[in-house]
Write a protein that binds this DNA or RNA. Structure first.
Lengths: 148, 148
DNA sequence: ACCGTCAATGACGTTTACGTAAAGGTAAGA
DNA sequence: TCTTACCTTTACGTAAACGTCATTGACGGT
């Protein structure tokens, strides 16, 4: 009758259900739960049900991006800590900064890789264009300049 | 006695042993053989021993880069075909071009990801610097400006 | 009261990308 | 000839990242 179970709409923060996030990020429920098993997400609970805050949602977005970049869940996990710098002691801030700089270095290398690969593939694309055009022009020529 | 088994130094092309390539690329023999099992490499043979040409070596470099970019071996495999455009029929050139363009699109997305992540991490790095400096300056101040 | 939907374990299965022996072949050097 | 270094194949093992049931629970609607 009275909403005995409806989670408190106390703090004006909107929350998300697992299915909602799954749909939004194109993941399965299993996958999101797996991220929790691995300690990448620690959603609140409304009874048994998982309740995700904006912060959880942001973390999930970071996880997805990390995955797109080819990092393992373990790597993404360390990665995530970097975004929680606010509540860290000066002691471990230096550690986090070291970690951040290592990641930056890794990403700079990856940036090189991506750019080089892009350049090569674009060259290949152009080369194919070239080949195809020559061939078609050649065909046209050998057909005694039938067109034009 | 006479080099009955020494591979023909016929064509002036230098060749590589599997251990050589493993050392150069920081891979294990097992890994390189695995790439062969998966059809990513098809080295020549001198008896039983694998003999790698410059071309094989170049392919291996591409494989490594693909892996660094987070692609699966299956993806890298298709990827490799793009570099063999020379000996392709116009028929499948169009197919290869399509594949190339898909990869280009994927890499452009990845480029965005990398750049955004880099920007964020650099911001975090700076933010930590900031926090640490404020704190140290605060400490200094509270110590009645002990230094300087 | 019954249904359908969404979610929660729990547990075994699968794919990818190799690791790790085990058992042996070949050729150069002491 | 024996050792050492480098290579071979065969085959089982494994860690990561989920997929895929099977079973159960809580709600909302009719």
């Amino acid at each position: 009758m009275s909403d005995l179970h409806a989670s408190p709409p106390v703090s004006g923060e909107r929350t998300y259900g697992i299915g909602e996030l799954a749909a939004e990020f194109g993941l399965t429920l299993r996958t999101i739960r797996h991220y929790e098993d691995e300690g990448l997400l620690v959603p609140a609970r409304d009874g048994q049900a998982r309740v995700y805050t904006h912060r959880d949602r942001a973390r999930l977005a970071l996880i997805c991006r990390g995955k797109r970049l080819g990092f393992s869940l373990a790597e993404v996990k360390e990665f995530l800590n970097l975004y929680d710098v606010d509540d860290a002691q000066a002691e471990q801030m230096r550690y986090l900064q070291k970690a951040a700089r290592q990641r930056i270095a890794a990403l700079e290398r990856q940036l090189q890789d991506v750019q080089q690969t892009l350049a090569e593939l674009r060259a290949i694309d152009a080369e194919i264009d070239d080949h195809l055009n020559r061939r078609s022009r050649h065909e046209a020529t050998s057909r005694e300049d039938s067109n034009r």
